[in-house]
Write a protein that binds this DNA or RNA. Structure first.
Lengths: 137, 137
DNA sequence: TGTTTTATGCAACATTGTTTCATTTGGTAA
DNA sequence: TTACCAAATGAAACAATGTTGCATAAAACA
């Protein structure tokens, strides 16, 4: 798994550093979207500013995307490979569990094709589901 | 318009106070969803804690609902009358303008009927559109 | 009017987001 | 391998937002 973390960094032409590799490993081993706080919990010790910038860089470079879940916290999830710099293409739905607060990507559910109101220019659409996840039911 | 603000308070069995009436007036005169910061800007002077609690109370009582727009800030919009205490029923889409940052309710666009993944229990669904609004085009 | 209940305002604090700057490290070319 | 340059890191500091406790003020109601 460490190998694929380094692969991802190489693919996106990002420098290989310990923090970045570890952050990617955490994402690779997680089925749900993670907040910065979630990620910090996986580290023994990490500078939160570095982590903040790591996530920001990853998001800009198309490595991770924001998982909009209607919750308070900003969460990220790994992009599936269709994303590139400044051109995210993660139009799948996200499921937010009201019990445990976790957010899951639902890869096979895509946002519906909708038409923006007249005069509006649509660029992206998100579909957010809320309820109770399989483990909390 | 002050009359209807007081009407709303009465309907929800909330005490009529100056701050609450004024907050409702602001919502009644606004076509877009408002963050706490937006609301503060309409006041000459207001205690931000009071405002925070006013919004929280309104949300709990079904007067306003959170407008999930995928942006950083939490925004609220007036409920249309189908909401009650702890039972929000605002399943219309929200449009977030990337230019001006404003969020509009699209009353006539409803979230699609979706089926949660097996094992998951769906309670609500949100549809968020992003792009450029009519005035920013 | 007086009593009870609730809202307000203030203080204080936690969390998150963000920038600046000096230092360290990774990548690369000599 | 070494040396250099660009980029990443870590520390400090600050802004904005979210949140609670408590004393006081105001609303609701008898």
């Amino acid at each position: 798994m460490t190998a694929s973390a380094l692969d991802i960094l190489a693919q996106h032409k990002l420098r290989k550093t310990a923090v970045r590799a570890q952050v990617l490993d955490i994402f690779l081993n997680s089925r749900e979207a993670l907040s910065q706080n979630d990620i910090e919990a996986h580290f023994n010790q990490v500078d939160r500013i570095t982590l903040y910038r790591t996530l920001k860089t990853f998001e800009e470079k198309g490595v991770i995307h924001k998982a909009i879940d209607g919750g308070e916290k900003l969460k990220y999830a790994l992009c599936l490979g269709h994303c590139s710099e400044h051109a995210h293409d993660d139009h799948h739905a996200h499921f937010h569990c009201d019990q445990c607060g976790k957010t899951f990507c639902i890869e096979n559910m895509h946002t519906p094709v909708v038409q923006a109101p007249s005069g509006y220019l649509l660029s992206e659409a998100y579909l957010v589901l809320k309820g109770t996840c399989a483990t909390c039911v």
